[in-house]
């Protein structure tokens, strides 16, 4: 399945785009998504183990299962405040 992944901050700069489409098997885990992101965009490879993933606006751990049509966002550690 194809997933549209929104990217933020340094992840967006490295990828050069705010959204990246990645191809993963269905169902895929968040960990598999991170690996697919690194393959689809090698510039993201050093960052991918550290990316936080939000699915439908909720944080999701590496084992979380993804399905087609979900809203997925990836970003490096946050620094607001």
């Amino acid at each position: 399945m194809k997933l549209a992944v929104k990217l933020f901050a340094r992840a967006r700069d490295l990828a050069g785009t705010p959204q990246l489409e990645v191809d993963v098997s269905e169902p895929a885990t968040v960990l598999e998504l991170k690996q697919a992101l690194a393959r689809a965009c090698p510039a993201l490879a050093p960052l991918s183990p550290h990316l936080l993933v939000a699915v439908g606006q909720e944080y999701a751990g590496d084992a979380h299962l993804l399905a087609a049509g979900l809203e997925v966002a990836c970003f490096p550690p946050v620094s607001g405040g």
Binding site: F8, A9, R10, H50, A54, P76, V78, S79, G80, G81
Partner: peptide, 20 residues
């Protein structure tokens, strides 16, 4: 999910990501 970006005098910008 909010990030700071520091803008330096030489025109470069840098996202702040704790731990990276």
């Amino acid at each position: 999910p909010i990030w700071k970006q520091e803008n330096w005098d030489d025109g470069t910008k840098e996202w702040i990501h704790p731990g990276l």
